[in-house]
Simulated scan of single mutants.
Amino acid sequence: MSALEIQHLCKDFSSTQVLKDVSLAIDSGEFLILVGPSGCGKSTLMNAIAGLEPVTSGKILIGGEDVTWRTPAERDIAMVFQSYALYPSMTVRGNIAFGLEMRKVPKVEREQAVERVADLLQISHLLDRKPSQLSGGQRQRVAMGRALAREPQIYLFDEPLSNLDAKLRVEMRTEIKKLHQRLGTTIVYVTHDQIEAMTLADRIAVMRDGQIQQLGTPNEIYNDPVNVFVAGFMGSPSMNFISARLEKDDTTWQLHISDPEQGAELSLPWPVDRVTEAMVACQGQSVLLGLRPEHFAEAGDQRSGHQQAARLEALVSVVEPTGADVLINLGLGGNEVVARVGPDCRVAPGERLALSVDMRRAVLFGQQGGQRLA
């Protein structure tokens, strides 16, 4: 039985449909992340699960029970908000224990729960402080502690790290990951940060315009995107999209890319064992070739491990050393693309750079609609 099941959920605000027939199931102990750009409906979906937002149609089941029209208090959930939502007049101890006190949990059990959670989150030394005496990261731990003290069926996290600085966000991501691994709790987590999604989730639901575009593991979402939107949203830097004409030459398939700078045409071979029916149907048509920055490597770099690599040469416009590698902006097929190469690359803007392209990992999309072809 799924810990959480959402069946054909719709939500309208006046004449605007914010959620459009959303369905998904979350297993017990699973960490699911809802990710997408602002306005895609992920927070509305979270609020609907929490009971904070009534739905227009559809069902929400928690532990097999229909809770669609139950109040938040009747749903056996706990929520961690973006704004922490701590009571400023209470100590940390009081904030963690408050929800238990409202549910008439005996004092001895409340104190045991507070001590257990404080020890788990390493905030025992903060129990007698007020929220105003805490840092942002400490406040977020307290907010998490208040949720964890409850031991509900499902934890809901609504962009809990968005108010923290970059370094602290990385640290808190690690803490949340450790916490989930230790407790095996069921978590639904909302974020617009695709790095958070990739590092934390067991599965990711990518949302756009009130619909789930793709539901899968981080590896599936990143390496096998179903459309251009998912491919472009996940990854930093994002995937490069290059217009190309798909042609078959005898037994081989080629992607022909116009190069206005050279007044010529660049051809990249497509692996024969990766030809699909959808791709065959687009023979002779314009398609979109998707290449992630790491699909490129400096020609001759033995560390890249690229198999069936194609070779090309392009003019460099920007060089960005990052320490571990170098990001290079190049002109390719009338587009500016980003390549991630090794830290020893010594190219300068204005020079031409020879690159290998790992066509085994490339993806193809239709020009119309942006659906995956291969």
Score class of each variant (00 low, 15 high):
I257F: 02
L164D: 03
D66I: 00
I187A: 10
L179P: 10
I123M: 04
G290A: 01
I242P: 02
I62G: 01
R173A: 12
I257E: 01
E265S: 13
R208A: 14
R203A: 08
G184K: 12
E151P: 07
C345M: 10
Y87I: 05
P106H: 12
R103V: 00
G290I: 00
P72R: 06
L168T: 08
L332F: 03
A299W: 06
G263F: 13
V275P: 04
I123S: 04
L156Y: 11
I123F: 05
S15A: 13
L19A: 04
I60P: 02
L268G: 04
K42A: 02
T91A: 07
C40G: 08
D12F: 14
P160K: 01
S23M: 13
V80Y: 05
A314M: 02
S14G: 11
A348R: 15
V105A: 07
T251N: 14
D209E: 15
N95Y: 03
V316F: 01
L61D: 07
L19P: 01
G145W: 02
E115G: 06
Q285M: 08
P321S: 10
A244F: 00
H306Q: 10
L45G: 01
P54H: 11
P131V: 05
G145V: 05
R173S: 11
Q7K: 15
M172L: 10
D224G: 15
C282Q: 15
I328L: 02
L266K: 02
T71K: 14
D209Y: 15
L52I: 01
K178P: 14
P269E: 05
E196H: 03
R360D: 09
F13V: 00
S317K: 09
K20M: 05
E220W: 01
V228Y: 10
L289S: 01
T276P: 06
D301E: 02
V226A: 14
V190N: 12
D250P: 09
C282L: 14
Y222D: 04
V80D: 06
R340D: 10
V357H: 00
R340E: 11
K104F: 11
A143R: 04
T56H: 09
C345G: 06
I176F: 09
Y189E: 03
A25C: 11
W69S: 15
G333V: 04
V287D: 01
S43R: 09
R203W: 10
M239Y: 01
M172C: 12
